[in-house]
Design a protein around this nucleic acid. Structure first.
Lengths: 138, 138
DNA sequence: GTCAATAATGCACTTCCGTTGCACTAACTA
DNA sequence: TAGTTAGTGCAACGGAAGTGCATTATTGAC
């Protein structure tokens, strides 16, 4: 088991107290979080710092940004098996219309999508909306 | 061929000059447009009016809103065959990373997506990103 | 260890889009 | 034609993303 420090260092991310905290926060959450979520969890931290930390994490591929259609960017840690760079490896996201939470369904890969001639597919964003397992009472 | 007036009336939308113009504009565009697109096309019109007109059109199911991941809502006329209400009839959208335009691929239906037990799927948003036919030089 | 270079952080501020409240005007109905 | 209802225009708000700059922390060379 790698320590958080090791994870950051292996991705060429300078280790700071702030980044350790943010990483820890993301790791403990099972759902994708917004900038505002993190902001309210760390009352003492600046929005800008959080914002830029997430951008850094995203660039270094330890976090992926999720657009679930709410208009607000959410972020989630990439799992061990998550290779966000590779199209075929993209998983889908589920957005609950009840609790408003978004989760990664990493085991559910996106089926190959055919596009018409002349179109070149580089990336696919697939969000399923509905009621999550917690809210459906199961 | 129905006139625009007839289309609006059949959907219980009161006919006004503004609405006719906006409908015409949407009909002429092959791509999804933003509020700002329409605003700059009709310099004399108010943003609010356009905004509310689109909302009305959307409620009455003659326009559907598209979230292509740019963070800006886009709108497109529903085609004859487009039954936005019915999940199975949802088509996918293609967003060009080059020209930044989004088109409806109405002939491409979204495949049935399986979700884990306990999750209830109500809606699916599928956006393919890449290079469109115009930009790929074909 | 000290110091310079580089990166991270904090603060203030801006911009963009979506949205709402309210007054005014146009369209329909009796 | 009067009165009700719906549409439009103006002003303003709010949330989220993003930027510039000064300050602070971290790193690496000496």
């Amino acid at each position: 088991m790698q320590t958080i420090e090791e994870v950051l260092e292996s991705k060429d991310i300078r280790v700071t107290a702030m980044r350790l905290l943010i990483y820890k926060f993301l790791a403990e959450k099972e759902v994708a979080v917004t900038l505002t979520d993190i902001e309210s969890a760390f009352a003492k931290a600046e929005r800008t710092t959080l914002y830029r930390t997430l951008k850094t994490f995203e660039e270094k591929k330890i976090v992926h940004q999720i657009d679930d259609g709410t208009g607000i960017s959410k972020y989630a840690l990439c799992e061990k098996g998550c290779n966000c760079e590779i199209e075929q490896d993209l998983h889908l996201h589920f957005h609950c219309n009840n609790c408003n939470e978004t989760v990664c369904l990493t085991e559910h890969k996106i089926p190959q999508i055919k596009v018409p001639d002349g179109f070149v597919s580089e990336n696919v964003n697939l969000v399923v909306k509905g009621i999550c397992d917690k809210c459906s009472g199961q």
